[in-house]
Computed example of a mutant assay.
Amino acid sequence: MKTVVALTLLVVAAQAVDWHNIKPKYSFRNTIRAVPKADRIIGGNIATPGLLPFQAGLFLDGSGFCGGSLIKEDKVLTAAHCCDGTGNFEAHLGAQNIYDESEPTLQIGTSTNGQMHENYSPFTLNNDLCVIHLDAPISGAGIGLIRLPSRSQVGETFEGVAATSSGWGRPSDADPNISPELKYVDVTIMSNAECSSYFGSTITANHVCIDTANGSGGVCNGDSGGPLTITETDGGKTQVGITSFVSSAGCESGSPHGYCRVTGYLDWLEQNAGVTIRP
């Protein structure tokens, strides 16, 4: 059985951040290798501007980075391990090149209020979700909301369904730097039973996993908190997962990659984010 590692990346803070020298920093908690705060996609493609208008880049206390998704004009959904211990959030929306603050669609929101799920476990990464309450709503060209699942989808496993994961994270285990450009990768959702054959009892009904095609496509340190989306029959995108962990053997080890399953938290999100859930 393989252990899991949370997909965060530490950003070295200075008067002016040298983004090209962002490095991952690993800490160990029990059998889980957690990686404090940040992001990347293995394989995949560079997103064209406006393709993923809900994607957020989150700078955490000036020393970390995670992904997220805009689920309401003043609410960003991310992983609890991105919020754990974080006091100040800076959400970049409408961004393409995460280094370029002159992009015309870029808007930056701030917050000191990251609301983690009350039953989040940093040891098992169970209930790994958090809502960031922005100080003010954000909207505009190149920025849009991602749809959450409907109540009728609560019993769906999504096994075999094509999905998309996105972020600015590391492109490989060997590359220490995040990607300047927003990337996405097309993946396939696998059964929890198959995922459990890799990770054992770590996998619960609160998780959804993807097949990484022998390590050629997926997430890495630290696409944490970023969205896993599917395209429904009406052509709309729906977020079914929140990027959470990979195997401690590495992003390209061939093991599945794990997400928090959004359908398990619809009541919590409606209550705490004020999002109306479809029937």
Rank of each mutant, 00 (worst) to 15 (best):
K25R: 15
R147N: 13
D223V: 01
T31I: 10
A273Y: 03
F54G: 00
N119E: 14
S166L: 04
G226Y: 04
P137W: 09
S150I: 00
L129R: 00
D175I: 11
H92T: 05
E73L: 06
L106S: 02
D39L: 13
A136W: 06
P256K: 04
G218N: 06
I242E: 00
D100V: 07
F89H: 06
E270G: 15
G250S: 02
R261T: 04
F199G: 01
P137V: 09
G94M: 08
L77H: 03
S255C: 05
V5P: 00
V275F: 09
L7P: 00
L125H: 08
G142Y: 05
G274R: 04
K75E: 08
N45F: 15
A163N: 06
G254K: 02
S179D: 10
D135I: 01
L7K: 06
I22C: 13
N177T: 14
L51N: 11
E181R: 11
I46H: 10
S121D: 11
T276R: 11
G67M: 05
A6G: 14
K72L: 12
T8N: 15
P53L: 05
T3C: 14
H207V: 00
T157A: 10
L93I: 09
H117Q: 09
T164I: 15
I71N: 03
H257L: 00
S165I: 15
S216I: 10
I42N: 01
T238I: 14
Q96V: 13
L134C: 08
N127E: 10
G85I: 00
E118W: 06
I242F: 03
Y259W: 05
Q115I: 12
V17T: 15
G218K: 07
A16I: 14
K183P: 03
P104E: 07
D175Q: 12
G215N: 03
N119T: 12
V12E: 14
D18M: 09
I138E: 07
V208F: 02
L58Y: 01
G222T: 07
E181P: 00
I22Q: 09
V4F: 09
G264A: 15
S111H: 03
I71G: 02
D234L: 06
E232Q: 13
V12C: 10
L58C: 02
S253V: 07
T212V: 01
H20M: 11
T110S: 12
K37T: 12
L269V: 02
A79H: 04
S248E: 11
P104Q: 08
G222E: 03
V11E: 11
H92Y: 15
A38N: 10
P171C: 03
P122L: 05
E73A: 11
S201M: 04
H117S: 03
S201R: 10
K183A: 07
Y184C: 02
T3L: 09
N127R: 10
